[in-house]
Design a protein around this nucleic acid. Sequence first.
DNA 1: TACTATATCTGCATATTGCAGATAGCTGTA
DNA 2: TACAGCTATCTGCAATATGCAGATATAGTA
Lengths: 144, 144
Amino acid sequence: MPHGRGWRRRRRGRGHGIRRFVEPCLLLLLHRGDTHGYDLLERLPDLGFAEETVDSSVVYRYLRDMEDRGFVASTWDTEGAGPPRRVYRLSPEGDRYLAWWIEGLRQTRVTLDRFLQAYDEHMELEGHTIQIERTADVDNQRSS
Amino acid sequence: MPHGRGWRRRRRGRGHGIRRFVEPCLLLLLHRGDTHGYDLLERLPDLGFAEETVDSSVVYRYLRDMEDRGFVASTWDTEGAGPPRRVYRLSPEGDRYLAWWIEGLRQTRVTLDRFLQAYDEHMELEGHTIQIERTADVDNQRSS
DNA sequence: TACTATATCTGCATATTGCAGATAGCTGTA
DNA sequence: TACAGCTATCTGCAATATGCAGATATAGTA
């Protein structure tokens, strides 16, 4: 539960949004080709994180975690300028993991659409009711 | 991060899915009319939780929390059979909170669609590449 | 040297959520 | 009466998710 008492007050966590969404994003980016964490971090905004920024710690933690689970493999790249980079490559398991994610996200979209449609339908009915009430009021005013 | 090492192993949390999604569901249900927690719990499956079940503790906690934040108000109903029920009513604040949720969920849908489209486009390109590679192979076989 | 950009990683606090179980009233039945 | 089962609400706990702050290190530039 949000601790904040006020409106929308939520210092940590983004409140709504899809859980663990960075994970499929990283998987897709890695499916396009091998890279290191910092590069992935910079590419994330193109992939859904237009408004919201992802913290670098989250990206690095997911990468390490996915390596532990065998979805990616890393090697050190000491070529070029700057500090060494840990370059990640998607494994066949990671490929299947991405497919599993996509399946889940498609289901999430169905759920989301169904909910938003339920909302719209309810509000439209509500609108009609208000319309009828207003008409009734007008009639009352006329008849009085 | 998921602690489980195996595939899809995730005993708690549903992994993907929309965070706090029960909250807007409860708000919409309450917008349709006042009711108590148990009734809301039973109505939730109609509203997006077709597959997954929501634990009763989650529902009751969100209701109490939203009451603390002024989005709903409760009264005890001791009429009728069974134990007393705490009946919730949406407040004007709760009404605006629902509207805020809807706004966020529409944004989430945009993000989700954009990601899934990026995936589909990438996979289609991938498919084309494979097609070209295969054609090249066939050509090689022919020329050899 | 000091500052900046690149790059990775850790610790902490908070938030989210499933699971287990406590408590209690009412209903039907052996 | 006893007890099983349904209704109804609530608490504690553990696992997970995630933002924030900051540590560490390399290399280029003023």
